[in-house]
Design a protein around this nucleic acid. Structure first.
Lengths: 166, 166
DNA sequence: CCAAATTATATGAATTTTCATACTTATTGC
DNA sequence: GCAATAAGTATGAAAATTCATATAATTTGG
C-alpha cells in the first residue's frame, strides 16, 4: 500500500465530493477557464468561437470540405453549413463546389479572412506561450503531451485532429 | 542548438499546422472526445449534459443557489434558471427560497433526482476508471493533477471548483 | 450497368440559448 | 436610517442550435 502522504488529505474540509476531481469535469472546466480570455479577445474581432475555429483550420489548410471542417472544429454539420454561409456573407470565406466530387463544398479563405486568421493565430500563439509559462513545475510541459495522448487514444484516426486525410 | 531528433520531424507530411498542437484546442477536443461516450449515456437517462452537471453538483452538496450552481456547472445564469425550472417540472429538483437572503433560490434534489444522480455518479466513476486505465505510461496519472494545476492557476478562488464557499 | 447503399450538404421547424435588462432584496457608506 | 450600489434571479425577444430529413452525387455489389 502507498503511504498516506500521496493522498490529498481525505477531508481537507469535508471530503470535497465527486465532481471537483472528476476527469471529465476537470477537462471541461480547464478548457473553459483556459479559453475564456482568448475567446473574449476573439469576440472583439466580431467573431464567435466556432468562426475562429474555422478560420484557424483554414489557415492551416485552406479549402477543407464542410463535413471535415465540422468534425475538427467540433461543430455539428448543419450548424456549420449555416455558419459558413454567414461567414461568406461577411466576406471571410468563399465556397467552391468540388469538381471531382460534386457533392462536396470546399471552403476557402478570402484575403480578408486570411488577414484576420493570421492575426488571431499570432495572438493565440502568444497567449498560449504566456499561459504555459504561468504553470510552474513540469505541469505546463506535461499537459499538452498528456492531452495529445488522450486524444490519440480516443480518436485513433485523427478525425478530430489535423490528420492529412482522415 | 538542439539536435533535430527532439523535433517531431518538421514535415511529417508537411508540418502539421498550428491548431492541432494548440493548447486550447487540445483541451476542447480532449474534453469533447473524452466526454462523448458518457454524455451519450447521460442522454439515455433523458438528461442533457447541463442537467447531469447540476445533479452531480447537488449530489456533492445539496441546496446550492442558482448563481453558484451556474458558475461551477459551466452554465450561464439565465439559462440555468430555465433549466432548473424544467428539472423541477420533471420532479428532479425543488426550489426553495433562502430565508436568510430572500434574493436567493436554493436548489435541492428530490428523491427521484437523488436516485438518478447516484446512479450516474456511480457510472461516471466506473467510466473514468476505465478511461484512465486505457492511458498507458504516466499520461493517465499525470493528467488530472496537471489539469487541476491549470484550473487552480486560472481560477484561484475556486469559482469553478468545489470550494466550500466561493 | 443498375439498384441499393453511402456520403455530402442543406433546410424546416421546434427548442435552446443568449443578451440585455427588469425586479427584488441585501449591503455599504455617509 | 437612507440613498446608492450591489447581488440574485427571472424574463422578453432575437438569434442560434438541434434534429430529422430532403436532396443530390458517388460508390458498391452483383
Amino acid at each position: 500500500m502507498q503511504p498516506p502522504e500521496t493522498v490529498p488529505s481525505e477531508d481537507e474540509t469535508q471530503g470535497k465530493g465527486f465532481v471537483s476531481d472528476y476527469l471529465l469535469y476537470l477537462l471541461a472546466a480547464a478548457s473553459e477557464a483556459a479559453s475564456a480570455q482568448f475567446h473574449a479577445h476573439v469576440r472583439t474581432h466580431g467573431l464567435r468561437v466556432p468562426e475562429w475555429r474555422v478560420l484557424a483550420w483554414l489557415h492551416d489548410r485552406d479549402g477543407a470540405m464542410i463535413t471535415r471542417l465540422a468534425r475538427i472544429s467540433l461543430i455539428e454539420q448543419s450548424r456549420l453549413t449555416r455558419i459558413i454561409i454567414q461567414m461568406e456573407e461577411r466576406g471571410l470565406v468563399i465556397r467552391k463546389g468540388d469538381t471531382r466530387d460534386r457533392r462536396r463544398v470546399r471552403v476557402h479563405l478570402t484575403d480578408k479572412g486570411r488577414q484576420i486568421a493570421e492575426q488571431l493565430v499570432t495572438d493565440a500563439r502568444a497567449h498560449e506561450t504566456a499561459l504555459l509559462a504561468q504553470l510552474e513545475g513540469g505541469d505546463g510541459a506535461r499537459l499538452k503531451p498528456a492531452l495529445a495522448a488522450l486524444l490519440a487514444r480516443l480518436d485513433p484516426d485523427g478525425q478530430t485532429r489535423g490528420e492529412p486525410d482522415a
